[in-house]
Design a protein around this nucleic acid. Structure first.
Length: 500
RNA sequence: GCACCGGUGGCGAAGUGGCUAACGCGCUGGUCUGCAAAACCAGUAUUCGCGGGUUCAAUUCCCGCCCGGUGCUCCA
């Protein structure tokens, strides 16, 4: 009954447990808010969401910290290009990021920590590293009252460097592909902790000089502030393993001499159409791009979580369509089951089917979050129950049991309960504000323009036509609605419709 | 170049040293329907990149090759 998760540090699948026996303390690297998030970003955040949702489902308490990097080179560059200070530039993208999390039903971490709110903690950490002989300052302005000068981490002071990514430092020659002595580093591989700034650049005046933090510093400082010097789990995209996480370890452990995190989880990158996603390849998609193309947030979520986190996911529009259909099947099923008229009682067959599905579902997720395997028993159950509904061999107690299993599925997958209207509407509103409404799918716009009342009116007209056996007119109406993304189902107990 | 991951039906994707190789999507036929849709049933991989080896037995282990991807540099 415990999640076992691959641990990059140990190289094996280890149980995930809170070291204090009460609350799991985890840190997951968040975004740099300089642009809108793309599906690659969200695959990682989504898989971390699957992790935390499953831990919750298994009854674990979590304290999850995520950083928001709101100062770095790209932000400074983009803000300068836009002609605004970074403090005016980043809030826009920070809000966009949080809105996108909501769209994808990614639960908010307990603590969101912004880099610029934690400069004192970072400065303090540099001071501790300096005392430990792991950090040094360079630059011509060195000396009393010096404001310039950058701080670097002295790799030579941390022999364990490379233990996470299993890199052999011996094999990496100094200066091989590193900027050569840009700031007079002792060793070319030493990394920046604190960057000296030129006059006019964004900077903070601190005890260690005037400048701005290096990227790796914030995560060490904030993780330790909120989670302690040693915590349970640290997660992020595979690219962060080296150098980012390796550097976090070096910064923290060189002063604490304790493992920063016991367990390290890394989410694999995705491909798009079989290639690495990049703007130059033309296969680069933000969440908003996809919503405007008419894909539902739930379908995007399912497509991005259905391949286990340690496997490369090949993202395609076929895959998105598949996810759309799969969700439709699940929602149609739940709807049907809830509305079915059943007699009271339970049947052994249904109870057993539900029990089996639940057992296999939990087993698959406990085994390194195998989301692909976890889906299978749920669909098996859906088929079995649909069959029973057809045959009339299911009772009210069975329904309760089956719905309870589906709830546990949705507690992690979060795709059955329909929250799709709002993200789509928000994306359209945003597109309008940006003046890019022409990028939206025509069907989407048509559907938005059709109110429930209008649909009901057309369906009433169609019902009348059908009663008069005027099938030509009734089919016309059905086609008309279909063109606007409305699907009609003539069931025994009446007509149902839904927005596609 | 060095290192790592993967190649399973039309597509996506699990899985295991030996029962009929999950599940989803798609497609074909049937039931139901005015026709559809939904749902159910049946069919859809004599076979798991190629070659060799280990084994009573390999898709699953080992070796080689081919192909795809990734890391070694900012990147989720």
């Amino acid at each position: 009954m415990t999640l076992r998760l691959y641990n990059t540090l140990s190289g094996q699948v280890d149980p995930v447990t809170p070291s204090d026996g009460k609350e799991l303390r985890m840190y997951a690297c968040g975004p740099t808010v300089y642009d809108y998030g793309h599906i690659g970003n969200f695959r990682t955040f989504l898989q971390v969401d699957v992790l935390r949702r499953f831990l919750h489902l298994e009854g674990m308490k979590i304290r999850h910290v995520m950083n928001i990097t709101d100062v770095d080179d790209k932000i400074i560059r983009n803000a300068a290009a836009a002609g605004v200070p970074i403090g005016e530039y980043t809030p826009l993208y920070e809000k966009a990021f949080l809105d996108d999390l909501d769209s994808l039903r990614i639960e908010r971490p307990e603590i969101l920590a912004k880099a610029t709110d934690h400069i004192p903690e970072m400065v303090q950490l540099v001071e501790r590293m300096s005392e430990a002989g792991a950090a040094y300052k360079t630059g011509s302005a060195e000396g009393e009252g010096a404001s310039g000068g950058s701080w670097y981490f002295r790799l030579a002071a941390f022999p364990e460097y490379g233990k996470l990514s299993k890199k052999d430092l011996e094999g990496i020659t100094d200066g091989a592909r590193v900027d050569v002595d840009e700031y007079e580093k002792d060793s070319a591989r030493d990394f920046a902790l604190w960057k000296a700034t030129k006059p006019g650049e964004t900077s903070w005046e601190t005890a260690i000089g005037t400048g701005r933090p290096g990227w790796h510093l914030e995560c060490s400082a904030m993780a330790m502030k909120y989670l302690g010097e040693s915590f349970d789990l640290h997660a992020g995209g595979e690219d962060l393993m080296f150098p980012h996480h390796e550097n976090e370890i070096a910064q923290s452990e060189s002063v604490t001499h304790k493992p920063l995190a016991r367990h390290w989880m890394h989410v694999r990158f995705l491909l798009v159409d079989g290639r690495k996603m990049s703007k130059s390849e033309g296969n680069f998609y933000t969440l908003r791009d996809l919503l405007l193309k008419g894909y539902k947030a739930s379908a995007i979520r399912l497509a991005l979580i259905s391949v286990p986190y340690r496997h490369q996911l090949n993202f395609t529009f076929d895959g998105l369509n598949e996810a759309t259909q799969a969700i439709s099947r699940l929602r149609t099923f739940v709807d049907r089951l809830k509305k079915a008229e059943l007699s009271s009682g339970t049947t052994p067959a249904m109870q057993e089917a539900a029990e089996k599905a639940e057992r296999l579902y939990f087993g698959a997720l406990e085994n390194d979050l195998n989301t692909a395997e976890a889906r299978a028993p749920i669909f098996d159950l859906v088929r079995a129950v649909n069959s029973a509904l057809d045959a009339g061999t299911i009772l009210t107690g069975d329904r309760e049991r089956v719905l309870a299993v589906l709830d546990k599925f949705d507690a992690v997958f979060a795709v059955i309960a329909d929250h799709d209207a709002e993200p789509t509407r928000a994306a359209l509103t945003w597109a309008e504000e940006q003046g890019i409404l022409d990028k939206a799918a025509p069907e989407l716009l048509a559907q938005q323009g059709l109110s429930d009342e209008q649909v009901d009116a057309l369906i009433a007209e169609r019902n009348l036509a059908r009663k008069q056996r005027n099938f030509k007119r009734s089919d016309e109406i059905r086609d008309e609605l279909a063109a606007k993304g409305i699907v009609i189902e003539d069931a025994k107990d009446g007509v149902r419709w839904k927005r596609k």
